[in-house]
Design a protein around this nucleic acid. Structure first.
Lengths: 168, 168
DNA sequence: CTTGGAGTGTCAACAAGGCTGACATATCTT
DNA sequence: AAGATATGTCAGCCTTGTTGACACTCCAAG
């Protein structure tokens, strides 16, 4: 676009032009495809989908989490989640334990087989992430995380922060 | 993890720990939700989905693109794309023109109504991206883009670069 | 102790948007 | 004339999201 009147906006804010923003949008789109590609391949071999991956990931991250907690992290309906959980439980990857304090709640944990699949999936995903991190360098990685965190919804940032604190 | 023997890896490579990578993975997951949330709201009001958004976005970016080109950018089957394109054409948002050189090809362009929807969608998405960029600052944004680009598949990077060059 | 509400599971039905396979049509290339 | 290419379309399947309805268990407040 043309020169803006205020001098301070002339150089400093060029990274906020529509053009730059559009590049960022497209980068998110293409990168997310790469981000999910490797786990997707592993999953489809076993007859699972991305929804199973998400459930396994967050059960691993928060062992003995309740169904409700998982629901609010994943942002889907309980019917959707239940369908996925049922197959994981039937297949012996996840164990559902009745709560001790509150017996209405179910606490979800990975079985050994579930943990093995989790490892395979996150190894694949981390390999790509590691390659990208290494290629970009630590300064870029810090910026990457900053922008992503600023892009989240409030609720999602809450969940993200809660997970971050767990094993820091 | 414990101290690694080599001194050079002690400090410099801490950003490559599994912990850091996992945080990056979760940041991508939560941020992508935010990234698509605003357009999704606009679309569902009109009875469209994310697939329509993607088609509209890339037709806008590459006016008069062919169906085949769009297919390779989006990475879906022609049946999937065709279902979406058919509704967009029926609803008068996209126009399909027989190619001049090669009459087998169809060149896709947005109508005025299609361009209006594209504007609404990308305004919403850019608003969030702009807020995130502004909050994180130009250095972070450069890193953000670097990491995303390193995360793409080869094919996707090719398409991304091609689009980048268009109006640079 | 009863009752209301919360947490959970489940059934049924539906839609979007992926996929495969098969086939038709028009057009270009050889 | 034959084969390859670009596109469209029909039919059917899968995953994963949705709503709505209903049952059950359990906790807590009255």
């Amino acid at each position: 676009m043309a020169e803006t009147p205020a001098a301070q906006t002339g150089q400093a804010l060029l990274f906020l032009t529509d053009e730059q923003l559009r590049k960022g949008i497209e980068a998110m789109f293409f990168a997310y495809r790469g981000f999910t590609a490797d786990p997707d391949r592993i999953l489809s071999d076993k007859g699972y989908g991305r929804a199973h991956h998400r459930a396994i990931h967050f059960i691993h991250r928060s062992p003995a989490t309740t169904v409700n907690n998982l629901l609010s992290i994943l942002g889907v309906t309980k019917q959707s989640l239940n369908r996925v959980l049922r197959t994981l439980i039937e297949d012996g990857l996840v164990q559902s334990r009745v709560g001790r304090e509150d017996k209405r709640e179910r606490h979800l944990v990975l079985t050994e087989a579930g943990a093995a699949l989790e490892r395979a999936l996150s190894d694949a995903q981390r390999d790509r992430m590691r390659a990208a991190y290494r290629a970009a360098g630590p300064v870029a990685v810090a910026g990457f995380r900053q922008v992503l965190e600023a892009m989240m919804d409030q609720d999602m940032r809450r969940h993200y922060e809660a997970l971050k604190d767990r094993s820091a």
